[in-house]
Design a protein around this nucleic acid. Structure first.
Lengths: 240, 240
DNA sequence: CGGCTCTTTGACCTTGCTCAATTCGCGTGG
DNA sequence: CCACGCGAATTGAGCAAGGTCAAAGAGCCG
């Protein structure tokens, strides 16, 4: 993965002109590294830059009054994690690094400038936030309508599908550096129950899940449990 | 409410030029009425027009394999219910009319044209989809981290806050034409449990809820149950 | 080795689900 | 005016998925 992951992300969805590729390339300028556990953006902040993930895993979350943490999305290389802060004033949630991350920070002025000069690129940026919203909807479906096994299976299917696009899979295997604690916060279950659910999932033989490594053995089987249909990820190139 | 509700929606978030107001006005052209229960957009469709709610209540939903329906958002006057179909190819969910609705349908070509000529308006359209996403996130928080009372209270707080903006409240009262069946599909609980939850909510004396009519008696009390903070709705005008 | 986080297990409890029946409001046809 | 039908609201009883508490392994790093 030498290629800029945002270009990979975009080209999975539409065709880019040479100039557009250059513009995107120029976004990767101010690169920052943060350790696992660090907050990339804090809830309530009013960022003046947006962050593009270059590597690692991060999560959007919100702290509940009982101390619990609810995760509403994971972000991997190629994801613009807080592009929405360009137009939304205050951050209504925080973004934290799950693993060590490398991110490029892009000034809002620069992005706003692009919206005045590059309509097509603007639509693609917009698109990426729309896909985020589609993912949120899917999580609502999964967390509201599936049992614990389905929820976890759904997350695995989604992360697998998204990681493939940006070249983070080897064959049917990928690293999912999500502890069961974090997993629990994402699917809205207790750690104990997540643990038992993962064990049940392993017993299905649809996947191997050992530590960080997940190998998909029967994607269709897994997708069946999760009622997973990847079309919400908009992985087909199309004129946008 | 003679005013175009989309203009009310936009002006709650930013200042509009006279020309922009005109452009928005011109979107309300092809008006359609649909009865309660009708599908406004079907899952899997590839719309060539987007729908703007003028009146009534609609819901985005997805049918689960067990026949259940998971609702991921409600839409009221002023909401662009499938603006995202402009850039996303296939609808990953359906939108159904909960009450009879009046909608304006706007051709995608027209909207796409605006993205080429009106950057500020484009940002505002983008903004409206970002607010939708913020609402999804909030629902994820509520449905994942609150008990049944909190979830229902959250929905009430949100609908109240949103309806006020577009002039659908009288004092502290508003119509919430959502049957307990529909409510159950939105908060991810069974009808029976929703019924008991609503009764518990009534006993708190934070609200009067009789049939369709909800009167908020103690918003802060309700917001406390729901951990509700309206800032995610971005109700403050700001240069975007 | 010691400390730390993550995983796993057991026992018991609670919230919310299912099934089934009753009631209520309201509009329609007789 | 009244019986009837129908969807929505309500209630009761028993069940089950998932939560809580507590403790024991496992893996990893200094």
């Amino acid at each position: 993965m030498n290629k800029n992951p945002l270009i990979a992300y975009m080209e999975q969805r539409d065709r880019l002109s040479a100039e557009e590729r250059e513009v995107i390339e120029s976004c990767v300028h101010d690169v920052v590294e943060l350790p696992a556990g660090a907050d990339i953006v804090q809830e309530g902040a009013r960022p003046t830059r947006s962050c593009l993930m270059l590597s690692g895993l991060s999560a959007r979350y919100h702290l509940m009054s009982d101390g619990g943490r609810q995760i509403s999305a994971f972000h991997i290389a190629g994801d613009f994690i807080d592009l929405h802060s360009l137009l939304l004033g205050r951050m209504d949630h925080a973004v934290g690094a799950i693993t060590p991350v490398r991110i490029a920070t892009v000034p809002h002025e620069y992005l706003r400038g692009l919206t005045n000069t590059h309509p097509h690129l603007t639509r693609l940026f917009w698109l990426s936030t729309l896909i985020d919203a589609a993912i949120h909807r899917r999580w609502l479906m999964a967390n509201g309508g599936l049992d614990s096994v389905g929820r976890v299976a759904h997350l695995v299917c989604e992360m697998y599908s998204r990681m493939r696009v940006v070249g983070l899979c080897e064959g049917n295997s990928f690293r999912l550096p999500i502890s069961q604690n974090v997993l629990a916060d994402a699917v809205g279950l207790s750690v104990v129950h997540v643990n038992r659910t993962v064990q049940r999932l392993r017993r299905t033989r649809y996947l191997h899940w050992q530590g960080d490594m997940v190998e998909i053995l029967d994607f269709d089987g897994l997708a069946g449990l999760a009622e997973f249909d990847p079309s919400y990820l908009n992985l087909e190139p199309e004129a946008r």
